[in-house]
Design a protein around this nucleic acid. Structure first.
Lengths: 155, 155
DNA sequence: GCTTTCCTTGACGCCGGGGTCAAGGATTAC
DNA sequence: GTAATCCTTGACCCCGGCGTCAAGGAAAGC
């Protein structure tokens, strides 16, 4: 099988496969015409990489799995080095989730505090004798669109 | 105050402050010598940016807060546009945390399955009549070090 | 034979938030 | 006066995972 077919069957692009090869993850035999030649086992390699990438693993982190498969083992995680990556990743996930939860709590607190402050100002504005140190109270600019930074995980 | 002093007082670098200026976040007056001149209110701007950056906000997301402060409001989140950013960020955090938890569950499952498979193979290896389709059972290569991808949040 | 498609390598672009020179002018300390 | 700092702008570098040309050879359909 040539690179185009492999890419299609794996649901990726030729560029990506060449990139993997350049990183030493997916070495390819060459036909007499110089074209890369792949077989079914290569397809399994690429699929393994995809699964891990979807988990948010970096390419380097997929290497033990790929080497494990290439060594002839039935699954990419049949080798201890792969298990070590799983464990390290779990630790990282725990840490990251914890930090994000902490941030969420803080941002929530900030939002509630700020909303409360605005509510108090609005009330004073109603009260006789109240001036208005008030901003744009109208909820303005719904035009501000942003892109979400998803930090490594896909959709 | 000149840029070096502001950087030091804000706990950042001159490069960063110039970068903010280039993004339109921190416009600076200029002295007759061409040097940037800042005052205390600029320090507050930079501090506001820092807080939000520590929350994992992108620079663009700090803009409403900064503009709110520059408009003379007591706090960066005194304006509705800032509150909108808080809310959007909370939604993103929820979504991201949810995805990470999902990944964590899946990786955990993979790890347990793979560990179980190895345990079964090890047991068979003990059993009389068992061959060994076994890999490197010894927990090898503690030498593989990696860098943690923390996706936007600092330490 | 001719066109279209597939393949090859190489090289630049992107995104965010700056780090890190480099060359030259201003200020300040002594 | 002069050396050590500070300031200025400009430009390239980093990371990860590719996307996107570009120029040219091979293969396949008709």
């Amino acid at each position: 099988m040539r690179i185009g077919e492999l890419a299609e069957r794996a649901g990726t692009t030729t560029r990506t496969l060449r990139y993997y090869e350049s990183r030493g993850l997916l070495p390819a035999r060459r036909g007499s015409n110089g074209y890369r030649a792949y077989d079914e086992s290569d397809l399994r390699l690429v699929e393994q990489i995809k699964v891990l990438q979807d988990f948010g693993f970096g390419l380097e982190e997929t290497r033990p799995f790929v080497e494990c498969l290439r060594a002839g083992h039935p699954e990419g995680d049949s080798c201890p080095a792969s298990l070590a990556v799983y464990r390290r990743k779990l630790d990282e996930l725990e840490a990251l989730i914890g930090e994000l939860e902490s941030v969420r709590t803080k941002v929530r607190g900030q939002l509630e505090r700020a909303e409360g402050a605005r509510a108090r100002l609005a009330a004073e504005a109603q009260t006789p004798g109240g001036p208005d140190p008030l901003c744009e109270l109208a909820d303005a600019t719904p035009s501000a669109r942003n892109k979400t930074t998803m930090t490594g995980n896909k959709g």
